[in-house]
Design a protein around this nucleic acid. Structure first.
Length: 191
DNA sequence: TGCACGATGAAC
DNA sequence: TTCATCGTGCAC
């Protein structure tokens, strides 16, 4: 091989993301998030996610309509929605369902596979580990420099379903079981 | 133009 | 439980 990208897997197709958000969320568990930046390959196994269901979901950023920040969520599926939280961390989401649905999945934890530090638990640290910042907001995840791919080494595992973290303001949506994680994974942010 | 508040993480 | 730190959304 002559460069770092030759051994990389193929990005998942657009159709993978153009489905019901809860289904995509469950199916993302065990997949690998891949990024190639400045010659460095970083790969992590997705072990924890949260589903955000669009306009009616009071915990979802798109619930108050399209704004400059949430514009990407209203676009086509398979794109990254990256935003800053608490003035010091970034959160990485993947847009799902048809254009205008404004649904997304928050990536909450990775198991390091390649080129990653130990701290990959929690959405803020996940982004720090992968080098994800606002410049990747709107990035098409079918692009081969930053994408999600199948992981043939993943052996499967039981999925735990729980309420989402940090959405106590979302009234009746607070307790909806929209957080999914691999039960056997020691890399989950909060068991 | 001002201001209250986070889809967090770490320290105490 | 408290705090760091600042973009965003909405009130005025």
């Amino acid at each position: 091989m002559t460069n770092a990208t030759e051994d990389l897997p193929d990005p998942l197709p657009r159709a993978f993301y153009d489905r019901k958000t809860e289904s995509v969320a469950r199916d993302l568990l065990g997949k690998q998030l891949v990024r190639v930046h400045e010659g460095i390959v970083r790969r992590g196994r997705i072990v924890e996610v949260e589903a955000y269901l669009g306009a009616e979901d009071k915990a979802c950023h798109s619930a108050r309509g399209m704004t400059p920040r949430t514009k990407v969520m209203f676009g086509p599926p398979g794109h990254a929605y990256v935003y800053m939280i608490y003035g010091m961390y970034y959160c990485m989401n993947i847009v799902t369902e048809g254009e205008g649905r404004a649904c997304a999945i928050l990536l909450r934890a990775l198991e390091p596979l390649e080129g990653l530090p130990e701290k990959t638990r929690g959405p803020g640290l996940l982004c720090r580990a992968m080098g994800i910042d606002r410049s990747l907001n709107g990035h098409d995840l079918l692009d081969e420099t930053f994408f999600v791919a199948d992981d043939p080494t993943f052996m499967g595992g039981k999925i735990i379903t729980r309420p989402r973290i940090g959405v106590g303001y979302a009234e009746e949506w607070t307790d909806r079981p929209l957080r999914f994680y691999l039960s056997e994974s020691p890399f989950v942010s909060k068991p």
